[in-house]
Simulated assay, not measured.
Amino acid sequence: MAAGDLTTLANAKQWLNVTTANDDQLLTRLVSAASQFVQTWLNRTIASASYTEKHTGSGSNTLALPNYPITAVSSLSIRGVPIAASPDGVQVGYTFDDRFLYLIGNVGFSAFPNGADGQFPTWPPLGVQVSYTAGYATTPLEIEQAVLELMGLKYADRTHFGQNSKSVGGEVVSFMTSDMPKGVVTILQNYRKVIPV
């Protein structure tokens, strides 16, 4: 399984009911290609990863981070001043949930205009630096299923590449020509990254 793959060769073969090793190289490539296609469409990485980013504050006590679900925050500084984590989510410091960072109380970083303690300041730009971990330890099952369906379509498509339909025994058989079936789009839409506001 390559880095970034959202399913395994074994699961792909089970989904496709393939029992031989004849197409293992092709299926491995399709798993990687479908996984990359899905993550590009989602505009995000699914697997857990570490990030260090600079952001311009929101002017409130809440800051949306672009990668999620957030599972850990290792450091936060505002205007170069380190901010400690709140020990209990009530006392002064920062806390977080799966999507947002929050400041609690007077965390002590003022000394610049246009921003008060307890708010992520809008000035200076990129004055908030955060290091955190976000993503999934294991691929959510519905995302994996979407990848399996996409790579299954491409696997079948190699026998009628570029055809919209063909006549078989007096009947016309039509082939799917869209990038993704509607059901796959519906599943993936729930995970697509949106721009934080």
Rank of each mutant, 00 (worst) to 15 (best):
173 V>S: 06
95 T>H: 02
103 L>Y: 01
90 V>P: 08
83 I>R: 00
49 A>Q: 13
89 G>P: 04
173 V>Y: 07
152 G>T: 05
113 P>R: 01
90 V>K: 13
150 L>Y: 11
99 R>K: 04
173 V>K: 10
156 A>P: 00
80 G>W: 05
89 G>D: 06
63 L>Q: 04
69 P>K: 04
73 V>T: 04
112 F>A: 15
183 G>L: 11
94 Y>Q: 01
184 V>Q: 05
178 S>I: 02
69 P>R: 03
147 V>Y: 00
74 S>Y: 04
99 R>Q: 06
59 G>M: 09
52 T>K: 09
146 A>R: 01
165 S>K: 11
177 T>H: 07
54 K>F: 14
157 D>E: 13
159 T>A: 08
168 V>F: 02
178 S>W: 07
65 L>K: 04
70 I>A: 06
81 V>I: 12
58 S>V: 13
92 V>I: 11
129 Q>G: 01
77 S>C: 10
158 R>I: 11
134 A>H: 00
119 Q>T: 15
152 G>Y: 00
111 A>R: 12
152 G>V: 07
134 A>M: 00
108 G>M: 06
54 K>C: 14
152 G>K: 05
157 D>K: 09
84 A>K: 11
68 Y>W: 07
50 S>T: 14
169 G>V: 12
183 G>K: 14
150 L>R: 13
131 S>P: 05
89 G>K: 08
81 V>C: 03
154 K>C: 04
182 K>D: 13
185 V>Y: 15
83 I>V: 15
54 K>V: 11
57 G>N: 09
148 L>Q: 12
165 S>H: 11
181 P>M: 14
68 Y>P: 05
138 T>W: 02
67 N>T: 15
162 G>C: 04
135 G>Y: 01
119 Q>H: 14
115 G>E: 02
164 N>L: 13
106 N>H: 02
62 T>S: 14
64 A>Y: 12
66 P>M: 07
80 G>V: 10
122 T>I: 05
109 F>C: 10
169 G>M: 08
179 D>M: 09
143 I>Y: 00
147 V>D: 03
